[in-house]
């Protein structure tokens, strides 16, 4: 062992010039990537903390200019934003609850090797990822169920994602040995009880993965809301952001020129603040989420 270690060390020292030049370019490449990804993020955050005039005259390029919280004051003073925030929280919490429950209920039985028909059911589920019935036919189903313009439209039609079922099933298959289930069965423990008191306590990592994936998905979604919801009172934050940020809808009447200019400057700043506000919950859980997302991906891609 000691000899092997010393060999590696000596080999490391003998790294050739070619290798060192190559490594230099690797670092350069990664540094470049880091800058490219980081800069737009920094720019948005810095702009959001600048004064309306500084943003409108293009003075911000790296750090906040004339530090101000005006953008955030206006953002949180907007009743639309507040309603959107509350709605999004509602959809995220209840949607995630429904999604995770249903996903586990499907994935766990399918992870049991002794379950007759599990391959067929799995194919039945995976096929929905390969062939899509279409936007209009799906819309008709939601409409016939009377879900249009109700909160259910955002909670149920996208409740289960096939790949989340796949990840969860793989996890159960790998981490809960079939022998354990059989031993429990011999001791007279029912499948339900086994799931509740053995599998779930052992599956906290996968539950975290599912919660985060569904929650981030719900928080970020806009299209189903656009499709199914008409009343503004039900709109999630992303849809509110869309109307302000992308469609540029501002309530403007006839006003003096100076007020107009101020309005325009405010509108520019508000956009940056709204981007930060809209991404805030995800940003807050990001350091935590990142680890679990990676874990979720690895469970999915590394075959058990």
């Amino acid at each position: 062992m000691a000899r092997a270690e010393s060999t590696t060390r000596s080999l490391k020292i003998r790294e050739s010039i070619g290798d060192r030049i190559f490594l230099f370019f690797v670092y350069l490449f990664l540094f470049f990537v880091l800058l490219i990804v980081l800069y737009p993020l920094i720019y948005v955050v810095s702009s959001s903390f600048s004064s309306p005039a500084a943003v409108s005259s293009g003075k911000v390029w790296l750090y906040p200019v004339d530090f101000s919280l005006r953008g955030y004051q206006v953002a949180f003073g907007n009743p639309q934003i507040i309603t959107g925030y509350a709605n999004s929280l509602y959809y995220t919490i209840f949607g995630t609850l429904i999604s995770v429950t249903l996903t586990v209920l499907v994935a766990y039985p399918l992870s049991r090797r002794t379950l007759f028909g599990r391959d067929a059911i799995m194919i039945f589920i995976v096929f929905t990822m390969i062939f899509y019935g279409g936007l209009i036919p799906t819309y008709l189903v939601v409409k016939n169920l009377g879900m249009i313009d109700t909160r259910w439209a955002l909670l149920i039609p996208q409740a289960i994602a096939a790949w989340q079922v796949i990840i969860a099933r793989t996890f159960f298959q790998v981490s809960i040995p079939e022998e354990l289930a059989e031993a429990a069965e011999l001791d007279g423990c029912s499948d339900l009880r086994f799931l509740w008191s053995v599998v779930l306590p052992l599956s906290k990592p996968i539950l975290a993965v599912l919660v985060l994936m569904y929650a981030v998905g719900q928080w970020n979604a806009y299209f189903d809301a656009l499709l199914y919801l008409k009343s503004a009172a039900l709109h999630p934050l992303q849809l509110v952001l869309r109307s302000i940020l992308i469609l540029n809808t501002t309530t403007s009447g006839s006003m003096e020129a100076s007020v107009m200019v101020e309005r325009q400057q405010m509108a520019d700043l508000l956009k940056y603040s709204l981007i930060v506000v809209g991404s805030l919950p995800v940003l807050l859980i990001y350091p935590f989420a990142q680890r679990y997302f990676v874990k979720g991906m690895l469970i999915g891609s590394v075959k058990g």
């Binding site: 249903l102 996903t103 209920l105 499907v106 766990y108 039985p109 399918l110 049991r112 002794t114 379950l115 007759f116 059911i121 039945f124 589920i125 929905t128 062939f131 899509y132 019935g133 279409g134 209009i136 036919p137 799906t138 008709l140 189903v141 169920l145 149920i156 039609p157 996208q158 409740a159 289960i160 079922v165 029912s190 499948d191 339900l192 799931l195």
Partner: peptide, 26 residues
Amino acid sequence: HWQLYLLLLPGLLYFVVFKYVPMVNA
């Protein structure tokens, strides 16, 4: 495993209603 089949039901119903019915609706 009748309990497991019971657990599967809501999820399978979901896939039938929101994925397979649209295929038929097409």
